[in-house]
Simulated assay, not measured.
Amino acid sequence: MPYAAGPATQGTNGMAIASMVLGIVGVLMCWCYGIGALPGLIGAILGHVSQKQIRERQQEGKGLAITGIITGWSAVALTVIGIVIVVIIIANDPTFWDEIQNGSSSSDWD
């Protein structure tokens, strides 16, 4: 006597997977000239959209979507913090750009 099959799942939501990947990439790149904010923001948005799809379509991947949201918004926050730190450094040291443009020699550190 065959067993009755359980309800068929729709599989893992692809947008949730993309959300998690972009969130992680955003965190890893958040100190690269502010580039990490873009994949982080996209990952967070995809995470929110995928949560809605997961509820409506009875799919799997809720944890992936939550991970994408958390890492995505973390990447955006870390990027903003990094930019604020750089702006504060530049504002407090008016010779900052001169030193960068002229290059600093090893004798400056002696």
Results as ranks from 00 to 15, higher is better:
residue 27 V to R: 02
residue 27 V to L: 15
residue 27 V to C: 15
residue 27 V to I: 12
residue 27 V to F: 08
residue 28 L to E: 03
residue 29 M to L: 15
residue 30 C to I: 04
residue 30 C to W: 09
residue 31 W to S: 12
residue 32 C to K: 15
residue 32 C to F: 14
residue 32 C to E: 06
residue 33 Y to C: 08
residue 34 G to A: 06
residue 36 G to Y: 10
residue 37 A to M: 13
residue 37 A to S: 13
residue 37 A to N: 03
residue 38 L to D: 02
residue 40 G to P: 08
residue 40 G to Y: 10
residue 40 G to S: 10
residue 41 L to Q: 07
residue 41 L to K: 03
residue 41 L to T: 12
residue 42 I to S: 08
residue 43 G to V: 12
residue 43 G to I: 11
residue 44 A to L: 13
residue 44 A to H: 06
residue 45 I to S: 09
residue 46 L to K: 03
residue 46 L to P: 05
residue 47 G to P: 12
residue 47 G to L: 12
residue 47 G to T: 12
residue 47 G to Q: 09
residue 48 H to I: 15
residue 48 H to R: 09
residue 49 V to I: 15
residue 49 V to W: 08
residue 49 V to C: 13
residue 50 S to Q: 10
residue 50 S to H: 08
residue 50 S to V: 05
residue 50 S to E: 07
residue 51 Q to W: 02
residue 51 Q to I: 10
residue 52 K to L: 12
residue 52 K to Q: 11
residue 52 K to A: 15
residue 52 K to Y: 13
residue 52 K to F: 13
residue 53 Q to K: 14
residue 53 Q to Y: 08
residue 54 I to T: 08
residue 54 I to M: 06
residue 54 I to A: 07
residue 55 R to L: 11
residue 58 Q to F: 01
residue 58 Q to N: 12
residue 58 Q to T: 05
residue 58 Q to Y: 01
residue 58 Q to K: 12
residue 59 Q to Y: 00
residue 59 Q to V: 00
residue 60 E to N: 04
residue 61 G to A: 02
residue 61 G to P: 00
residue 62 K to F: 02
residue 62 K to Q: 07
residue 63 G to E: 05
residue 64 L to R: 00
residue 65 A to Y: 03
residue 66 I to Y: 05
residue 66 I to H: 00
residue 66 I to G: 00
residue 66 I to M: 04
residue 67 T to F: 02
residue 67 T to N: 04
residue 67 T to D: 01
residue 67 T to V: 04
residue 68 G to Y: 03
residue 68 G to A: 06
residue 68 G to K: 01
residue 68 G to P: 08
residue 69 I to W: 03
residue 71 T to R: 03
residue 71 T to E: 01
residue 72 G to I: 07
